[in-house]
């Protein structure tokens, strides 16, 4: 799925898959920080979004 999303032009860094147990609070925090940083670096997504007017 990630490959296909990347193929149609959505940056790979916007898509994250992770396996986190409910006991792994620190891993959760790390993953979220990592995602936030990567997505912030890319800026807002202007593709594949639906505009209602």
């Amino acid at each position: 799925m990630g490959n296909l999303i990347e193929h149609i032009g959505i940056e790979r860094e916007r898509i994250h898959f992770s396996w986190i147990s409910s006991a792994e609070a620190t891993k959760f925090v790390d993953v979220v920080k990592d995602i936030t940083e990567k997505v912030r670096a890319l800026g807002p997504n202007e593709k594949f979004k639906k505009i209602y007017n």
Binding site: H7, I8, G9, I10, E11
Partner: peptide, 17 residues
């Protein structure tokens, strides 16, 4: 044909599709 698209940058890919 797939490789040709894979070689594009994200904006080009999106425009292509």
């Amino acid at each position: 044909s797939v490789e040709k698209i894979e070689a594009m940058d994200p904006d080009e890919k999106y425009q292509y599709f």
